[in-house]
Design a binder for these strands. Structure first.
Lengths: 146, 146
DNA sequence: ATAGGTGCAAAAGCTTTGCTATTTG
DNA sequence: CAAATAGCAAAGCTTTTGCACCTAT
């Protein structure tokens, strides 16, 4: 069945379009899989340099895009001007609830909302392919400090 | 009661913080209110130049931010790297359904989803202040061309 | 008079791209 | 060996900022 490891997914994605597996891509994939919940390209680049400082910034950007296109990663937009990345393959879908005070964020799962989204899209004749839901608010800790 | 025109809202916002009403701000407000559903700062700047080409780009950016802070405008993020603006005051809240093929978008209203968002946030102890929901899909026209 | 605003051009911040040398299969 | 990739540095795009001059109250 369709349960493939991230490595296999990437390999297949590359092979299908005549692209190559390189040491850089291997290294970046491994580091990507170890990353915490989400991170910016710049943050990832910093991490990468600690492991192999011969890998260039452009490669990091290009590879994160590759991961996204191959379904391994997904991009997030927290509204601060930079793209964030997060592991997608093998993880359950979720949205984000972000504290506007401390910038902390938590992952939320809300199947009821997902279902309603499908319904609303269908109502307008659209076939839903993706969605992004960001909830902004004040977290319990920050509310306590008011 | 609290039904104020955009002009009044801006005036009050400015007065409260010792800011001034200027000819530029008047012109930009008028043009902003005439704009179609949503637009980028650059698009707005192009429009502004047609009316008064002495108004600088920096003023346009600064003023759009002012409109946003004063509640007249809200920002949208369609994921293409630039901020879009849209009239907020006096308009009903809505989200966006965007076609990934032709980039066309429509406004959607889904009170059920809004309510569930409140509930989910509350479940995590958050006080919801804002949210952004973008649905991406393929519109009826583009589906017909498949 | 004086805080605040504007225009201009430069700077900043993130991301992409052109080019040449290397590497993969 | 041919096609694809990496690294580097430069360029690109959107947005912000420093500064000298101007203006609303």
């Amino acid at each position: 069945m369709g349960t493939q490891s991230p490595e296999e997914v990437l390999q297949e994605y590359l092979r299908e379009r005549g692209m190559l597996m390189t040491p850089q891509r291997k290294t970046l994939l491994q580091l990507f899989l170890e990353e915490p919940k989400h991170f910016s390209a710049e943050e990832f680049y910093e991490r990468v340099k600690q492991v192999d400082d011969s890998i260039g910034q452009a490669t990091v950007y290009r590879t994160l895009k590759l991961f996204t296109e191959s379904g391994l990663a997904e991009t997030l937009d927290f509204g601060d001007g930079r793209t964030r990345y997060e592991r997608r393959l093998g993880r359950e879908h979720h949205d984000h609830l972000i504290c506007i005070r401390c910038r902390d964020s938590i992952e939320i799962r809300a199947p009821e909302i997902e279902r309603l989204q499908e319904e609303v899209a269908g109502r307008h004749g659209y076939e839903l392919t993706d969605h992004a839901l960001y909830l902004y608010g004040i977290c319990p800790k920050c509310r306590g400090k008011e």
